[in-house]
Amino acid sequence: MEDLATSELFFQEISLETILGRPFQIEIVDSILIIGDNIEGKALFLYNLSDSSWVRVLNIGQGPGEVLAPLAIDVSDRDHTISVLQRQSGICRRYRVDRLFNDSIFDFQEASLEGADRVAQIHDGYACLGMFEQGILSFFDAKGKESECIDLYSRFDIKDISAKYRLFQGRLAFNERTRYLMFAPSYASEIGFYAEQDDGSWVKKDSFCLGTGGFEDRISESSGFELFKDDIRNCMDACSSENYFYMLYDGSDLGHTHKIEFRYVIRFTANGILDCVYKVNPTVRNICVSYDDSAMYVLMIGKDGEYAIGKSELSIR
């Protein structure tokens, strides 16, 4: 990332009346921040930016209305909804954010996305990353019926789908205006942008390569299909807004042998073209951006050494 022109973002901590535990994801719908944070027996922390009100919702467990961790979440600005994927079972529940804020925990639509580990809400269903029989990227309708599965890494002779997913896992983000899907891998080098065709199939429209492709070269020459301590972590998180995709880039090795000075947020247009790069605090671990691109919100380590929510105003270019 150092060879790309960058500008630095500085984050102001948002003062909360409560503490965060070990938050794992942040999203935004309208004025409500949604933080995945398994604390006090609840799965989600919802914070209203308009009046600083907040609630903790969704009991963790296996009873009626409860959800079982670990979770992955995604939101839709168009529908004002949040989807909560239970990664062990593939059960995905979609809630209206305003109703969930009022603790309407039984008001949801449920779909079984068997094999899914990550989820993105798309216009008529879900795009998922996971251990699927035909590949690691699969598409489902709103009721959980699989419509297509893409083997993104068919050129590698890896029969064990769990090994393939471990190597080529990543994050998804969907742009509701252009209907483009971004796949940003955790370790592999190529970020892909996909669009749905008139017949319902998905095709790659553009891509962007991080680094030299050394990770893929090593996998091609290997028979062990393992992650090594000197492998670089690329994507930590991804999100979209009305006009852009954003990817949080790490750049550290899995063995933590060197300390990074910055992490980076790479911004792409809604059609997958590199737009700009931001330097950010190296403790930033998750990101989301308001639909109008006016502000970025992050999970980071705050001044007191604990997890905090940070906000940075974005200049609209």
Rank of each mutant, 00 (worst) to 15 (best):
F156T: 13
M300S: 09
E146S: 11
D79L: 09
L46C: 11
F45C: 02
G130F: 01
L71F: 12
I32Q: 08
E196F: 07
G200L: 03
E196V: 05
V289A: 01
N102R: 14
M131P: 00
E306P: 00
Y278C: 12
F245K: 03
F156S: 11
G135W: 03
D217A: 12
D37R: 01
I232W: 11
I136H: 06
D253K: 07
I287P: 04
I316S: 07
M182K: 05
Y291C: 15
I122V: 08
S240E: 05
I32N: 10
M131F: 04
I39E: 07
Y297A: 04
I191W: 04
D151S: 05
V203A: 14
V57F: 11
I60K: 06
A163E: 08
K204S: 07
G61L: 15
Y264C: 05
G170P: 03
L58K: 04
G61H: 08
V265S: 07
L299E: 06
N271K: 11
G211H: 08
I316P: 02
H256S: 07
S201P: 05
I158S: 05
F106H: 11
I122A: 09
K303F: 08
D98H: 08
I191F: 08
L49S: 02
D74G: 04
M300F: 03
D3P: 06
L274Y: 02
G65R: 12
G200A: 05
G224M: 14
G211A: 10
D98E: 13
A120P: 01
P282I: 00
Y194E: 07
R87I: 12
I309P: 00
Y194W: 14
I39C: 13
D3F: 14
R166Q: 13
R93V: 07
S83M: 06
Y47H: 15
